[in-house]
Amino acid sequence: MNRETMLALGIAVVVAVSLVSVAAVPDAFADPDSDPVRPGHVSIEEVSIAPGAVSGGTANLTVDSRLGHRGGTTENVSVLVRAVGLESGLEETAVRAEVGEISGDREVSVVRNLSVERAGGYRIETVVYRDDERIADGSKEVRGVGTLVPEYARTSVDFHWRADDDLPAVEYTVADAGDNRTALNVSTYLTNEGDDPSEELRVVLTARQADSNIVADRATVPVGTIEPGRTATPNAELAVPDGYNYYLDAVLWKDGVVVGTARSVANLDPTETIEADETVREVGIEVGDFEDDDAGAAGAARETEEPAADAGEGGTPGFTAAGALTALVAALLLARRQS
Results as ranks from 00 to 15, higher is better:
residue 125 E to N: 08
residue 119 A to I: 15
residue 37 V to M: 11
residue 107 E to I: 10
residue 24 A to C: 00
residue 39 P to R: 06
residue 77 V to L: 04
residue 111 V to E: 11
residue 323 G to V: 06
residue 179 D to K: 13
residue 120 G to K: 08
residue 198 S to W: 03
residue 152 Y to C: 12
residue 155 T to K: 05
residue 261 T to D: 09
residue 244 Y to G: 12
residue 202 R to K: 12
residue 74 T to I: 01
residue 8 A to W: 05
residue 226 I to S: 07
residue 335 A to Y: 15
residue 194 G to D: 04
residue 152 Y to T: 15
residue 242 D to N: 04
residue 25 V to H: 12
residue 167 L to C: 03
residue 96 R to H: 07
residue 78 S to K: 09
residue 283 V to P: 14
residue 120 G to Q: 10
residue 273 T to D: 15
residue 242 D to W: 02
residue 327 A to K: 01
residue 162 R to E: 13
residue 144 G to T: 12
residue 187 S to G: 13
residue 78 S to F: 06
residue 242 D to A: 04
residue 309 A to F: 09
residue 226 I to D: 07
residue 278 E to I: 10
residue 71 G to D: 00
residue 167 L to Q: 15
residue 117 E to L: 13
residue 248 L to V: 09
residue 247 Y to K: 00
residue 300 A to R: 15
residue 89 G to W: 02
residue 234 P to V: 05
residue 312 G to P: 08
residue 326 T to G: 10
residue 268 L to G: 03
residue 257 V to W: 09
residue 172 Y to P: 03
residue 311 A to T: 06
residue 310 D to P: 05
residue 273 T to Q: 14
residue 175 A to I: 12
residue 61 L to G: 08
residue 127 V to A: 04
residue 339 S to N: 14
residue 236 A to I: 07
residue 207 A to V: 04
residue 194 G to C: 06
residue 198 S to D: 02
residue 64 D to T: 10
residue 151 E to W: 00
residue 200 E to I: 08
residue 239 A to K: 14
residue 330 A to C: 08
residue 318 G to W: 08
residue 332 L to K: 02
residue 55 S to T: 12
residue 34 S to Q: 15
residue 81 V to E: 11
residue 113 N to Q: 14
residue 302 R to V: 11
residue 323 G to T: 09
residue 207 A to F: 07
residue 182 T to W: 05
residue 267 N to W: 11
residue 155 T to S: 10
residue 180 N to L: 06
residue 121 G to F: 12
residue 47 V to G: 09
residue 143 R to I: 00
residue 13 V to A: 14
residue 8 A to H: 05
residue 299 G to C: 01
residue 84 V to P: 10
residue 79 V to M: 06
residue 266 A to Q: 01
residue 128 V to G: 06
residue 138 G to N: 11
residue 83 A to V: 00
residue 81 V to G: 02
residue 63 V to H: 05
residue 31 D to I: 09
residue 113 N to P: 09
residue 279 T to V: 14
residue 226 I to C: 07
residue 179 D to I: 10
residue 218 R to S: 15
residue 147 T to H: 01
residue 103 S to Q: 10
residue 250 A to E: 10
residue 289 D to T: 13
residue 181 R to L: 12
residue 120 G to M: 05
residue 247 Y to E: 01
residue 27 D to R: 00
residue 126 T to L: 04
residue 253 W to Y: 15
residue 276 A to W: 08
residue 325 L to G: 07
residue 197 P to S: 01
residue 92 E to P: 01
residue 249 D to L: 14
residue 285 I to G: 13
residue 33 D to V: 09
residue 123 R to A: 10
residue 288 G to V: 09
residue 92 E to D: 12
residue 325 L to P: 00
residue 253 W to K: 06
residue 17 V to G: 09
residue 78 S to G: 11
residue 119 A to W: 11
residue 92 E to M: 09
residue 177 A to R: 15
residue 111 V to G: 01
residue 269 D to T: 11
residue 58 T to N: 10
residue 69 H to Y: 04
residue 210 A to H: 14
residue 81 V to T: 11
residue 26 P to I: 05
residue 176 D to S: 13
residue 79 V to Y: 08
residue 17 V to A: 12
residue 39 P to D: 02
residue 68 G to Q: 11
residue 40 G to V: 07
residue 117 E to T: 14
residue 150 P to M: 07
residue 234 P to L: 06
residue 169 A to E: 10
residue 124 I to K: 03
residue 61 L to H: 04
residue 145 V to H: 08
residue 220 T to Q: 13
residue 204 V to I: 13
residue 321 A to H: 00
